[in-house]
Each structure stands twice: as C-alpha cells, then as structure tokens.
Design a binder for these strands. Structure first.
Lengths: 338, 338
DNA sequence: TTGTATGCGTTATCAG
DNA sequence: CTGATAACGCATACAA
C-alpha cells in the first residue's frame, strides 16, 4: 500500500531540486530548463505525483471547476445537453460539477451555494429555478454565469436564447401549406419563458393570418401531459387539424393518444410539430417533424464566452435559430422552410 | 461590487473573535459557546462569508467530492442513474463531479486522473471502460471506488451487480408460459459483462428445457441496432416467436421494425422482453414487458457503503434482482414470476 | 534559470 | 471554551 498522497516536496527531494522547480515544471509557460523539467517529470512519474488542484486553486485565481446546474436531467433533451457540456468542458481541461435542482425544498440554493464554496470559476444554468438572489451572489463572488433559455433580466451573465418566435412562425407556415386551418397549441403548466415564447409566437403568427388557436395547458412538460392534451383536444366537437406541441415529449404522448384512443391518422387527419428533436422523435413509430435544438452551437458559444477574459466580454447575449427537421407528421412538400 | 471573497479572518475581525472561533462555529460538533457561535454567524451573514472547501479539503482528509464516471449518459437508463446519484449525493452533503468517458482517445484516463488531482473521496464507475491501471491508481491514492455492473476482478472497490442469470431464467419461463418455442436473443456487439451474462443465462435456461436459441449481435446497444436485429431475425425462414432483447432501446427498435417492416403482431405472433424499464418502455406504443433496474437500491447501497468508515467495510459486493414488470408484449397471465 | 521566503484559507494541536 | 501557532500543498515575488 503506497503512501496516500505524494506532495511536490517529495518529488523535489527525489529529483534533487527545489519545491518551486517542481511547481514550475507543472506550470505551462513557466521559466524552467528542459533538463530539470525532465528530471522532475521522471521523479513525478515514479513517485506517482499529481498536482493537488485544491491547493493550486487556493493560490491561483481559478479552480478549473465549472458547475452544471440542471433539473430533470434524465429528460432526453437535458441529458444530451449535459453530455455535450461535460464532454466539451472536459476537452477544455475543465472539470464539471453537477448541481441537481430537482428538489424544491431549498436544497437547490444550498447546492448552488456549494459551488461558491468550491470556488467554481463558472456556473452554467441549464434549467431549474434557483433563487435570483443566489444567482446574484455567485455573480458578486466573481463567478461567470451562463444562462440558457432563461429571461432573468440580470446583468453580468451570458444569455443564450432560442429564437422561439421565429420557430413558431415557421410552424404556422408549415401548417398552412399543409392546408390546415384549425390550429391548436399544446403547452404545459410550467410556464418557462421559452415555453411561453413559443405559445405567444404561435398565437401571434396565426393571428397575422386571421386564424384562431386553441390552447391547452396540462401538468408538466412530459409524455403523459401530451396524452392529456390529446384527450381534451380531441373529444371536443371541432377537432384541430394541426397541433404544435411545446416539446417533443408532449408531442409523442399526443400522437400516441390521438392514434390509439381516437383513431386519428397522422398526418392525414392531423399534422403535428414538436420541439427539441430528441432521439425518440426519429423513431419509426413517430417520425416527428420537429425543431432541432442547436446543442452544439449552444455549447460552443458558452465555452467561447467562458474562455474569454472577464473584462474582454463585449457580447452579452446570443440567440440561435432552431431549424425545422422535416419528417412525416406534417403533410406536403418537405422543403426547408426555416 | 463586493470584494471577491471574504475569509474567516475578516469574519473574525468583524465579530471580535479569533479565526479558530470562526472555524469552530462552522464545524458541526465543535466545542463553542452558543453566544460566540451566534455572533460569528451574524457577522458571516452580513459579510457574505462561505467556508472555502478547497482550503478545508486541504486540511481535512476528505474533500466532499464524489466522481461520477459515465459514458453515453444521454441514454435513458444512464441518465436516470446519474440523476439519482447526483440527487442523493447532494442530499448527503457531497458534491458530484462528472467524468465523461465517451471519448476513446485517452481523454478518459486524463479525466479520471483529474479526479485524483481534486482529491475526490470516491469514484462511482457507472460504465465506460477506464483503464484498469487507472482504477488501481485511484484505489492506491486512497479513493473509495464503487463498480456498477463491471466484473473487474479487483480488490478494494465495492461491486454492485445485477442478477442477470436469474432475470434471464425468468424471461425463459415467461416465454414458455406464453407457449413460445422458438426463442431468440438480441444482443449488441459491445460485450459488456452484464450483457453477456444475460445472453449466457438465457441460453443456459433455454438449454435446461432442451430449447435452442438463435442469437444475433449487432452494433451498439441502441435503438437502430434493434431494428437491424429484426431484419436479420425476421427475414429468415423460421422466425422466432419470442425475443429477449439485451436492453429496452434495442427492444423498442426491434418492435418498431417487426411491426412496420414485417407486419408482425406483438404479442400475438411474437413475444418480446426487454431490460432496464426505461420510460419509453411504458409508452402506449410499446407497453414493453421488461426487467426494471433497481436504481434506488443501487444508489442507496452505494451511499451506504461510502458512508461507512474505510476500515469497517465488511461487505465487498452486493447483487440485486431486476424484477420483471409485466406489460403487453408477452402473452398470458400477468402474474409475478420473478 | 534557480532557490528562498511568504501567503492562500482552513483545520488541528496545544496552552491557557 | 478560547486564542495563538503550526501545518496542509501549492504558486509566486524576489533575490541570487
């Protein structure tokens, strides 16, 4: 059994150099001769030395830790986002801390406060609703913050948003081309800014064509809620012939229920569009026409912003388009409309 | 703009006590009077003080950091596992670091080494194949390790396994009761121990009844591979009437292809059983009969083991059963068999 | 380029 | 119960 941890001191002694030499050998761009550097590395290798990032973070301004703040991360879209972020962060030499904001009992704030305790360089808020005060606190403590799809009107963080209005307009156009007239919008009761933007955008675009939209809102943004929506929408006298669902999970639930509980044919009787382009949307049982989350762009933009010096930051926010990926739940020509 | 970080020294000065008093006030179970404790807390509150975990970790033996090592974490089962772990870890006052082992170019080892650099107390290996040597290295550095569904024959870590053989036997029984005789097994080419255990267990159980099993292995353990399996299994002269898929993703792909490409009715013509009980398995398009991963038990057992003192550890491994959840892809009476 | 000395923010030890 | 002091492992200003 080897001694639990070997310090820079041990390496220095073994290599016959000073402690600082070891430190310099492990600091990129430090002034050290190739000879000593090699000897240090050799000793480090044989002794099994690893730089203690805790101690290094104590001295340096940055700890190399980035926090991923997320709720419901087993949801397909969120899971992909977390995977993409952790992957790229890791590639950039950063380490990612996971803050789970599922609980509503204040454990969230406590966890976010933890990120402060560990002196995280940055926090990326993918979702969840941490207290605004805590966000402010992190900011004041010198943490960089990236806000994704949140409309907190707060200064300092980098805001990344989707052009939900634009997407909604594209959806309306697609429906109109398919010859649909009775439009419906399926939302959840969550009321997240981006979800509401999709609803409002859809309503506005439809109104510009003199069309009315039936709106339903049920529970959480999940599969089961999509089923509920189908029940409330398809039992009514005048059924819609086009439904825009606020996300894919709800769209899939809606489709299943529409087909199996009401015998509705898709897209012959009813056109459906979703949002997110989760993997299941492409499964052959669904072939859902939906808007794709520009995950790569979101991640790239975030990392780029984080890599810039804090004072150099000119850009404060960025908006991306979610392109429509045509599959088989909307009638008509499958040409790119977005 | 507040001063970036406030130290225990600042609090001590503000409260009119010594640094040690502050330290004790924040250490549960330390000997400190209620009076000073309150004064310290007050000063800390107004000044916005937070214990620096980096410095604390430097002194204490434990950093409070636990690493979650996982690959393909946007897969439904993995995502749920990660969510459950991060949630419970957080509840226990630990902080979780995410190590993404998706890349195959050595970035994995580098990342795992990072966990050493941050002096993580423990690593939980959910998947992926980090080099055995690295695992050993973590172990030697005093890290606690939990291995989930891996059969590394290495001493020190806590091994958690599923009773795959038992599950496979239950599957065979279920198929036999449904009157199936032509059994097939759908596997991927990944060859993970637990996947192979399911295959071997299935083959053995079938053999005990004098039954032969057709085995196919295609690509990765994903939806698309399930479709491929359907194509190679259902185009042959003698089609199987029962298929055990190594996981739900493949089962769902298999079902979709069987129904849509071959007009097979499920369960009338063909019975299907999957593994994992991912959310999609319960969607009404599938209603898949499958084995449920005992995620809660896995997480609980892991945390319990981690909370025990390193020297107290009597138990080295634990095996859980995956109960069969009956839905609609297997004919016959839906009584509990497992 | 190299070594020395100091400080980062804590906790542990030991007097008082 | 409290305060001073010594670690923890590292990075850096400074002098050599």
């Amino acid at each position: 059994m080897s001694k639990s941890f070997v310090s820079a001191n041990d390496v220095a002694r073994h290599a016959g150099v000073s402690r600082s030499a070891v430190s310099r050998a492990f600091t990129p761009g430090a002034s050290v001769s190739e000879d000593t550097r090699k000897r240090v590395m050799n000793s480090a290798q044989t002794l099994g030395y690893h730089v203690n990032q805790l101690a290094r973070g104590l001295m340096r301004s940055e700890s190399g830790i980035v926090c991923l703040v997320v709720s419901e991360m087993d949801t397909p879209y969120r899971a992909r986002l977390v995977r993409a972020f952790s992957h790229e962060l890791q590639k950039a030499g950063k380490i990612s801390m996971l803050i789970n904001t599922d609980r509503s009992d204040g454990g969230v704030d406590a966890a976010l406060r933890q990120t402060l305790n560990y002196r995280a360089d940055a926090s990326i808020l993918l979702s969840g609703l941490p207290d605004k005060a805590i966000t402010k606190l992190c900011l004041d403590s010198g943490q960089r913050i990236v806000l994704i799809n949140r409309d907190d009107n707060i200064n300092g963080p980098f805001h990344i948003n989707l052009n939900d209005h634009q997407a909604a307009k594209v959806a309306v156009n697609a429906f109109l081309r398919a010859g649909c007239r009775a439009l419906a919008f399926v939302n959840s009761e969550v009321g997240t800014p981006s979800l509401m933007a999709r609803e409002n955008g859809f309503l506005a675009a439809a109104a510009s064509f003199g069309l009315n939209v039936t709106v339903t809102s049920h529970g959480n943004t999940v599969y089961e809620s999509g089923r509920h929506a189908a029940h409330s929408l398809l039992t009514s006298f005048d059924r819609p012939d086009a439904v825009f669902c606020v996300n894919d999970l709800m769209a899939l639930g809606f489709i299943d229920s529409a087909r199996q509980d009401f015998g509705v044919r898709i897209p012959e009787d009813l056109c459906v569009i979703g949002f997110d382009d989760i993997e299941q949307a492409s499964w052959s049982s669904y072939e859902l026409t939906t808007f794709a989350q520009p995950i790569d762009q979101i991640v790239q933009a975030s990392l780029l912003w984080l890599s810039e010096a804090a004072d150099t930051q000119n850009v404060k926010s960025q908006t991306f388009n979610a392109p429509l990926v045509w599959r088989k739940t909307v009638r008509g020509n499958h040409q790119q409309v977005s």
